[in-house]
Design a protein around this nucleic acid. Structure first.
Length: 328
DNA sequence: GGGATTTGACCGCT
DNA sequence: AGCGGTCAAATCCC
């Protein structure tokens, strides 16, 4: 059985140092934030352990002819805990400062257009300007809004954080003095539920991988992972086939771990990996990462495995699994 | 076919 | 002026 600390990857010294540092923080709010962050990280780790354990248990159940499991209940609970941590963090950071709320801002362009053009007129303009080539700049960018608010909170992490929400990527940009692309995400439920939450993910370090996730606003939507959690069928599901690192399988379809455990948008993981290095390089450096940084990202590793050829997958699996033995 | 991502262009802000 | 956030058509993927 894989222990939680295995995935947490914090050695005793670093934990002690972290605690010592936290005790010195005079700001109670910051201490609370740190505590919540840690709780959320642990919930993330627990979720991964559950996913791993679920795949194992499923095979055992199959052999025993039994199909009942409490794991779906536990997983459900962990997801809810995860969402609670995320929401609390966002609320904590937005409650003391109204400017932190992601309020819709009205730009000069909005004002001018609203005073000169009625909605009915706008519709007719849209109707006649469906062809991009005849769309004027004025019409195309009419709804352009730009946030001018401080981030709700931000976090550096060696993993791509699973925060319990579903994000939709709407842009990416190479920024000055940054080695990697910055990706822009907004809540998937922006349109259907008017949720204004957004986040930016910036890779800030290659090895070990380190990402800075900055959140803006907070979720007003009913989280998809919360609202759609259903108990899994008790009969065996195709997705429960154990650790298969076959490159021909798509991550979303055949990864033994729930897709929600991977990056919360479909291409987030692959994109980051493609950032600077090929999968080959990832493979060759993986062992070093595992040995030198116990916080190796399981999602990241699985993503690499999915990109490899069959032969490489086997090699990767060996490295990855032996690393689990090593740290446990 | 529909939803998500990519990507070049636009434009607010400093 | 130029950086960076956002838009939206094109493209991808299921």
């Amino acid at each position: 059985m894989v222990s939680v600390s295995l995935f947490g990857g914090h050695n005793r010294n670093s934990v002690m140092a972290r605690r010592k540092m936290e005790n010195q923080i005079p700001n109670g709010k910051r201490a609370m934030e740190e505590e919540l962050n840690r709780g959320r990280d642990m919930a993330n780790q627990l979720l991964e352990v559950l996913a791993y354990d679920k795949s194992i248990t499923h095979l055992q159940k199959e052999e025993e002819g039994s199909s009942k499991s409490v794991l779906p209940f536990v997983e459900d609970l962990v997801r809810k805990v995860l969402c609670s941590f995320t929401n609390t963090l966002l609320l904590l950071n937005s409650s003391n400062d109204v400017s932190h709320e992601l309020l819709p801002s009205i730009t000069l362009r909005d004002v001018s257009s609203s005073t000169t053009t009625s909605p009915k007129n706008l519709e007719s303009v849209d109707e006649t300007c469906k062809n991009r080539s005849i769309l004027t700049t004025e019409n195309r960018r009419r709804g352009y809004k730009r946030k001018s608010i401080a981030p709700s909170w931000e976090k550096n992490s060696s993993i791509l954080i699973e925060d319990g929400y579903v994000w939709r990527k709407y842009g990416q940009k190479m920024t000055l003095n940054a080695k990697y692309l910055r990706s822009y995400y907004r809540c998937t439920h922006k349109n259907d539920q008017g949720c204004q939450a957004m986040k930016q993910v910036q890779r800030i370090q290659d090895v070990p991988p380190l990402y800075r996730t900055t959140y803006y606003g907070h979720h007003t939507c009913k989280s998809r992972m919360n609202s759609e959690i259903v108990l899994e069928p008790l009969s065996p599901s195709p997705s429960s086939t154990l650790l298969s690192f076959n490159s021909s399988s798509r991550c979303k379809q055949e990864n033994p771990f729930p897709s929600s455990l991977l990056a919360s948008t479909k291409h987030e993981l692959v994109e980051v990996i493609h950032d600077e290095h090929s999968a080959q390089n990832q493979l060759s450096s993986l062992e070093d990462i595992l040995l030198h940084d116990c916080e190796v990202d399981c999602d990241y590793s699985r993503g690499v495995a999915n990109m490899l050829s069959s032969a490489e997958s086997v090699e990767f699996e060996n490295v990855f699994m032996s690393s689990l033995d090593f740290v446990s």
